Amino acid sequence: MFLSSPHIYSQILYVIAAFSFPIHLFGGYCILFKTPKAMRSVKWTLFIMHFWASLFDLSISFFGQPFICTPVLAGFPLGLWSWLEVDTGIVMFLGFTTAFLMPISVIKTFENRYYILFADRTVWRYFRYPFFVLNYILSISSGLTTYFMIPEQSYARSVIFERNPDLLQFDFPESPILVLAIDNTFNKYRQFALIAIFISEIMIFVLLIRWNTNNAMKDMKISPSTLRLQKNFMRALNYQIAIPIILLCIPSVAGITIPTLIQDHQAFNNFVYVVVSFHGVLSTFIMVYLQKPYRDVVLKMFGVDVTSNIRVAHSVDRITGSVLF
């Protein structure tokens, strides 16, 4: 299949980068300059989440372009870092770190909602910063551990080429295959553990927000208009995060299981990375579509009159103040 070719794979990723980069910029512009004052407390968490999602996309489609030589944990970069002759191990570390810092930004977004709405006067205000420091340490140390465990290459390469002679066709003098691990079992378990931890943290904050919102509604601590806006914002945020996560999870699981059932597993693995490189673009589209202030920016660009909607939004802002956002 043509996707097995490193050259074709790289060119496809460059096209995706050229398409996605202006979309990422537009999403950042909307957050920084079109976020209403009523949403000021969520502005920077949204931007940080958008930044890491965009950087993750571009690390695949432009900066790194990882060509992972399945079924082993080995490969080489094809993107900008390769042209700049950055050490392949460093490129790997940057890729792993970016991939794990992205979910932390998602956790931070939900934690921000929980803290501002319900926990700013609780004991959580003392634990939230150590909590995120620990998450950052886990993310960075994961990439560092893989980097420092890279085996001696002459021996490692002889082992994997003996086991997988088909990989020799991708081993070029200008971009030699780097073997990250001869046995990938430890790395898989560590990554699965981190993913499980991050998903659990996201779910905990989602449940805490829902539980406290329901209690506040019963105790009449939140006005109906504020409650409605809170639910709309959280629904939009849930879609913005859940749909791209599905886009990440389905190809990732397929990338582990399907290659064992098909002959051209290298092409399929490359296809998985092509699909995953759209993660941030899809997240940006969903954010702009579901968050009304950003959707109005797009409508105005196409000449749609949103003046009446803006008046209604401003009226609601005066009612709710900064309680919600």
Rank of each mutant, 00 (worst) to 15 (best):
residue 2 F to L: 14
residue 3 L to A: 04
residue 4 S to I: 06
residue 5 S to G: 09
residue 9 Y to K: 07
residue 10 S to N: 14
residue 13 L to T: 08
residue 14 Y to K: 09
residue 16 I to P: 06
residue 16 I to M: 12
residue 19 F to T: 13
residue 19 F to G: 08
residue 20 S to P: 00
residue 21 F to N: 02
residue 36 P to H: 03
residue 42 V to Y: 01
residue 46 L to R: 03
residue 47 F to C: 04
residue 48 I to V: 14
residue 51 F to L: 14
residue 52 W to R: 03
residue 63 F to S: 00
residue 64 G to T: 01
residue 77 P to E: 02
residue 78 L to F: 04
residue 101 L to I: 05
residue 103 P to V: 07
residue 104 I to Y: 03
residue 106 V to S: 11
residue 106 V to T: 15
residue 108 K to W: 14
residue 108 K to N: 12
residue 109 T to I: 09
residue 113 R to Q: 07
residue 122 T to S: 14
residue 122 T to W: 01
residue 125 R to T: 10
residue 132 F to N: 14
residue 137 I to T: 13
residue 140 I to D: 00
residue 141 S to I: 00
residue 150 I to M: 01
residue 152 E to L: 02
residue 156 A to E: 01
residue 157 R to H: 01
residue 163 R to C: 02
residue 167 L to A: 04
residue 173 P to C: 07
residue 181 A to M: 04
residue 198 F to C: 06
residue 202 I to H: 06
residue 203 M to Y: 14
residue 211 W to T: 14
residue 220 M to C: 05
residue 229 L to N: 13
residue 229 L to T: 11
residue 232 N to E: 15
residue 237 L to M: 15
residue 238 N to D: 08
residue 241 I to P: 04
residue 243 I to D: 07
residue 252 S to F: 15
residue 259 P to S: 06
residue 259 P to L: 05
residue 282 L to F: 12
residue 285 F to N: 01
residue 293 P to V: 04
residue 294 Y to S: 00
residue 296 D to Y: 12
residue 301 M to H: 12
residue 318 R to Q: 15
